[in-house]
């Protein structure tokens, strides 16, 4: 599949090219299947996720457009992974019965999944624009690593210094995210 460039693949999908679609199923579906199976899912789950991922890409390509910066295979895999993670979380919430916000119809679900994916891509892109230290700090912050460990790891003089550094980086990330041209599309702000 990787012999074709991303543009050609997306174009073929939009033309409904059965040969390319088949190729995608053959080369990619087994990977997605084993990912879903290894993460509490069934073959049916994998089929649904894979279909939704390709459909999502086709919808995006038909509207605002989709920018794929990695290989097409890698990209589809990431979309599938994000879809499956969201699905697992929504199932967990259902089990725990925490006031689930039920989406009314399939279209709503697709729109929500597209927005989710684009937010993820925006975040990923801007995260990479942070300095190396900021990236490391933010990773720890997101993992909720205690400040006293951050102090040790980065040899800061106190927890207060660590706190200031983390928030400087978070502020930077927020500014980067906010300034992204796609930001307004993806948030209600």
């Amino acid at each position: 599949m990787n012999k074709l460039n991303n543009h050609t693949i997306v174009d073929s999908l939009l033309k409904g090219d059965q040969e390319v679609m088949q190729l995608l199923y053959e080369s990619l579906f087994p990977k997605v299947l084993s990912y879903v199976r290894n993460n509490q899912g069934s073959k049916e789950d994998a089929e649904e996720i894979f279909h939704d991922a390709l459909y999502q890409i086709m919808i995006r390509a038909s509207t605002k457009g989709v920018q794929i910066n990695s290989t097409f295979d890698g990209y589809v895999y990431t979309v599938c992974r994000n879809l499956w993670l969201a699905e697992i979380k929504s199932r967990q919430r259902k089990v725990r019965n925490e006031g689930v916000f039920e989406l009314k119809d399939k279209d709503d679900e697709i729109v929500a999944a597209i927005i989710n994916q684009e937010r993820w891509e925006l975040m990923e892109e801007q995260f990479l624009n942070l300095s190396d230290t900021c990236r490391e700090l933010m990773k720890d912050y997101f993992k909720k690593v205690p400040y006293k460990e951050i102090v040790k790891k980065f040899s800061y003089s106190s927890e207060n210094v660590a706190f200031q550094k983390v928030f400087k980086c978070k502020k930077r990330l927020m500014d980067l995210v906010k300034s992204h041209p796609n930001y307004k599309n993806l948030t209600g702000l």
Partner: peptide
Amino acid sequence: LKNALKNA
């Protein structure tokens, strides 16, 4: 588009 994908 959805149908094409379903066929595949």
